[in-house]
């Protein structure tokens, strides 16, 4: 599903990703773990299509389609979704309006008809109920004044609504207490399927107790330095990242 080959990325002249290669087949849940500054968030932004990164070499393909010459919105319409580590607040834009604009913009790019409003409302309400999101939150401006947990639940709601085939979860656990983490993880697990792949980016093993990955990749200094099964996460929890930092250096 997602194929990254020899990716080199710089920001303001500083190299962040240094020949990273990664393959995530359909239906797989892959975790990427790594220390601060290893380039995990950069990787998620570059895949999603943020403009201020300079890709100097390599390729990213989703379902065989080259993503690098696509805008962020086009990538979303191709089925890519990023759960933000820090979801943005958008004052003055009601959550419902935002959700409808996103869904219909994607459908339009895929040459699909706009979703009828009653169908849309029904889907949003059902998804919101599963995530313990009260209806009045949907009337408020996007994420404005929401708690950390509410913002993350709103991310998962968007994911459920937009039904991406590839989702990147960038530090889903940051800012979440145990109860909120469980609700979000349950929401994500409900979306696991043979056709959908997930890339779970995290510092800590804890999140992977709730979203159990098929594979774990360790990232250090801009590339994947080791890959293994879920047990690799437990090992890292004990030994830390020190070995990998020195290895890469």
């Amino acid at each position: 599903m997602l194929e990254i080959e020899n990716l080199h990325v710089s920001v303001a002249g500083k190299k962040i990703l240094d020949g990273l290669s990664l393959s995530v087949p359909a239906g797989q849940v892959a975790a990427i773990m790594g220390p601060n500054g290893s380039g995990k968030s950069t990787l998620s932004y570059v895949i999603a299509g943020r403009a201020d990164y300079d890709v100097t070499e390599g390729s990213i393909r989703l379902g065989g389609v080259d993503l690098l010459d696509k805008t962020a919105a086009e990538r979303a319409a191709l089925g890519l979704f990023l759960v933000f580590q820090y979801p943005l607040e958008i004052p003055g834009v009601a959550t419902m309006t935002f959700l409808k604009a996103a869904l219909n913009a994607q459908r339009k790019m895929r040459d699909e008809a706009e979703m009828a409003i009653p169908d849309f409302m029904k889907r949003v309400r059902e998804a919101a109920a599963r995530l313990n999101i009260p209806q009045d939150m949907l009337k408020r401006p996007v994420n404005l004044g929401f708690s950390g947990g509410e913002k993350k639940r709103m991310e998962i709601l968007q994911m459920a609504l937009l039904e991406p085939r590839f989702a990147i979860l960038d530090e889903l656990d940051s800012g979440l207490d145990i109860d909120a983490l469980r609700i979000c993880a349950d929401g994500v697990n409900a979306l696991r399927s043979k056709e959908r792949s997930l890339l779970v980016i995290t510092h800590y093993q804890r999140l992977l107790d709730y979203i159990v990955p098929d594979v774990v990749h360790v990232m250090s200094e801009g590339k994947i330095v080791r890959s293994g099964g879920p047990e690799l996460a437990l090992e890292l929890e004990k030994s830390g990242y020190a070995d990998y930092a020195s290895e890469a250096a």
């Binding site: 999603a48 299509g49 943020r50 403009a51 805008t71 962020a72 919105a73 990538r75 979303a76 319409a77 979704f81 990023l82 933000f84 979801p87 943005l88 958008i90 004052p91 003055g92 834009v93 309006t97 935002f98 604009a101 996103a102 869904l103 913009a105 994607q106 790019m109 401006p141 968007q158 937009l162």
Partner: peptide, 20 residues
């Protein structure tokens, strides 16, 4: 970028923010 990452093309995202 947040809006674009949800599939809203940049001109439309700008219009939504300006309207707000």
């Amino acid at each position: 970028f947040y809006m674009e990452s949800r599939g809203i093309p940049r001109p439309e995202a700008q219009a939504i923010l300006i309207q707000a």
